[in-house]
């Protein structure tokens, strides 16, 4: 039986980034969602083990998406990690972001990202 590939949902409006991430993180089963408005629906369908959320997105920002996910009974226990470009050098050293969510600062190497995912997966 092949190793179980953890399912990662990436919600980020930057298509180049999500495409390359899918290539770089081939160890995981990655679902790209570039439209934050669709994030909740996609998450319900995909049933990810972890969600990577960009913060600054048009129409709806990452915070709103996180709130919606947490409000959904099916998804409320899925770990969320924020991916954000808006961090100063000072903030990068912090562990947690608003709402106590873990975050990763962009730009990020695939290795670092994988490490972060491993840390936050429930299993």
């Amino acid at each position: 039986m092949p190793d179980y590939k953890a399912k990662i949902l990436i919600v980020d409006d930057e298509t180049g980034f999500t495409k390359l991430m899918k290539v770089a993180l081939s160890a995981y089963d990655i679902c790209e969602e570039n439209n934050p408005a669709m994030a909740l629906e996609t998450a319900r369908k995909f049933r990810p083990d972890l969600i990577l959320l960009d913060v600054i997105m048009p129409e709806i920002d990452g915070g709103d998406v996180a709130a919606r996910i947490k409000a959904d009974p099916m998804l409320q226990y899925v770990p969320i990690v924020f991916l954000t470009a808006i961090v100063s050098n000072k903030e990068t050293s912090q562990q947690r972001l608003f709402g106590g969510y873990p975050f990763v600062a962009k730009p990020v190497t695939p290795e670092k990202l994988m490490e972060c995912i491993k840390q936050n997966l429930a299993f």
Partner: peptide
């Protein structure tokens, strides 16, 4: 500043991810 950060860091994120991909030999 936020705008610049966002507009520059996102491309950088793509570059970083791409470099990571290129660094992996077999895939």
């Amino acid at each position: 500043a936020s705008g610049v950060a966002h507009e520059v860091k996102n491309p950088l994120a793509v570059l970083q991810m791409g470099l990571g991909c290129l660094a992996k030999p077999s895939d």
